[in-house]
Computed example of a mutant assay.
Amino acid sequence: MTDTVTLAQVDPTAPRRRGARRRPGATLSACGGAIVLLCVAGLIAVHFWPGFDPYTQDLALVRLAPFAHPEHPFGTDALGRDLLSRLAAGGKTTLWITLTIVLLNMAVGTVLGLLAGFFGGWLDSAIALLTDVSLALPAVLLLIALSAIFGPSALLMILVLGFTHWMSFARLARATALSLKGRDFVVAPQMLGATSWRVIRTHILPHVLPQMFILAVTSIGQVILLQAGLDYLGLGIQPPEPTWGGLVLEGQKLLRLSPWQVIIPGVAIFLVVGGTQFFSQRFTAETNQPLRKVR
């Protein structure tokens, strides 16, 4: 008797065997999710702190060390501004810009990938050519060139990063659409007279979106790291608006005198980026888990 590869049926009501392993990445995912939730909750809570003020300068309290003053638990910078308030304000700006960029990438990549995978032909070739051109064009160099013409700004960074990192979304959406367009639940509505757009929206898109959201979660940390690097280089949000990359740049000038000005925003970037990567491990492991053989 030959073996057939099928999805193993598991009874959810059956008791788990003693010593059975947990699903891959479950522990890392739980730790990462907890870290991200704590960081986001902390950023929100700081905005209700009695002394929250990321912009007011106090030259009498310059370069205070952490916990040296009750009103400034994370210390102050070279101009006497509260570092905790600036960290929270920068985190809020970083998160909403990151989510905007990721959603733009997901929207553009999903649409182009669905069109390429479902219709194929010359449209597939054109989108594949556009993908190759986009991969060959460094986003940082493009942002530098546009910043020299229009000046650096948050809007310019969102537009450049939002329309230059969609290729992985497009490839995944195309592969999923190719695997689904020959299935019975996709072919049957077309034979009954349903339009292609209705079939894509009703029968293919619901199967593609979960994959897109998984990829979006994995790319959040990468976009945060890239955005912090661009802010550090002066290509993103400009002072006096606080950003995590900008805080690292400001603290680097006084690294020997007050190293906490670099360490604190650096730890915040590390925790959020690492937390999002750990959180995405479970979804990635479940998606890539091989099928089991059943006799």
Rank of each mutant, 00 (worst) to 15 (best):
L28V: 00
D184L: 12
A285M: 01
I127C: 03
D58A: 07
T284K: 06
P189S: 12
T56F: 02
Q238P: 08
G193H: 05
T100N: 10
S153F: 11
A14H: 04
R282M: 07
F150P: 00
T218K: 00
F52A: 12
L103F: 12
D11K: 04
Q190A: 11
I237L: 09
L7F: 09
V102H: 11
T27A: 10
G121S: 09
S219V: 05
A170R: 10
R295V: 00
D82P: 02
P70E: 15
L161M: 15
L87C: 05
K293L: 13
R174A: 04
L141H: 06
D77I: 04
A45T: 10
I263Y: 03
A136K: 09
L271F: 14
Q57H: 01
G121H: 09
Q277V: 13
V40Q: 08
L7C: 01
M1G: 15
V46M: 11
D53H: 04
L141D: 08
F48D: 06
E250N: 15
I144L: 14
A30I: 07
G19Q: 08
L38P: 02
P259K: 06
D77A: 03
F150M: 07
L129H: 13
L99K: 08
R22S: 10
V223R: 07
T98M: 12
T164W: 13
T27E: 01
T2H: 01
G117M: 09
W197L: 13
P70W: 14
L61R: 10
G117F: 10
T94Y: 05
A8Q: 08
